[in-house]
Amino acid sequence: MSETAVKTGMRKSTPKIPESGRMRRIIKNRAIYLMILPGFLYFLIFKYIPMSGLIIAFQEYQAYLGVTGSPWVGLKHFERLFTEPMFFTILGNTLLLFFLNLAFYFPVPIILALMLNEVRREVFKRFIQTLVYIPHFMSWVIIVSISFVMLSMDRGIINELMVMAGFDKINFLMSSDWFRPMYVMQVIWREAGWGTIIYLAAMAAIDPGLYEASRMDGASRFRQMWHITLPSIRSVIVVLLILKIGDVLELGFEHIYLLLNSMNRDVAEIFDTYVYTAGLKQGQFSFSTAVGFFKSLIGLILVMLANKLAKKAGEEGIY
């Protein structure tokens, strides 16, 4: 589940009260403030100080000079980013992976949920759910490692089976062509089962009377799915689609970094992996911060646009 779906249930700010009353309340609640303090400091230090640290994107950051002492260079790093040929490769890779994800991963949990929803035997349903949820709890390292072991040229089961069936071995792991299918397959394997939860919950809320009425009219199971179940979860689908669009740039650094190697870099490099290589491996702190800043900013704009779009479409939106 994407995190922005959380409903906060925030209220409008409390009506104005005399300062003395507020002060008294604050003093009365001092223990509560003390409870919040460690968490508040956590967010301040590890979330907000790094946000202010984004200013090094406009500097030529030197470790020994620090943020305050490093010289200002204006938009130099951004100019470099937009003129770097790598920029368009990364942008293209990001967009293509996003669309593949949308086309091939996004419908899978919906279809799976539709199928599970038609199962009347609770035991069977729960058994299948138990199986398909498992990969979600495995780290990307485990998912990728298992894929590597199975797809390996050296006695990987997939290549061995292909040889037995009379095909040639394929070096999946070192191939530009196979990177994208492999990425999408792994996303489906890990997340499709887990992705059904929210749809199943929405389906559970559908009035059973609708199905009975349609059965009276002689509607087949497919027609019931198409005309009752799907329309009933429409708003959930729209919200999740919007969340997905807001997350265009979040393709999973951990996942892609594990798959990345010198042979598939031309198709696998995305913003996050580029930031990591340029920043931490090559020490170009300011430039890579500029790249990351650009990415975060576009991400923020996309989420806001997507939310607006949802509200326009008559849905609730996410915040």
């Binding site: 100080i49 790094p50 640290g53 931490l280 702190f285 890579s288 911060t289 990351g292 900013l297 991400g299």
Partner: peptide, 13 residues
């Protein structure tokens, strides 16, 4: 949840 300083500034902190 919507915006972050990103990898490098966090690393520096």
């Amino acid at each position: 949840m919507l915006f972050s300083g990103g990898m490098i500034p966090t690393f520096l902190v």
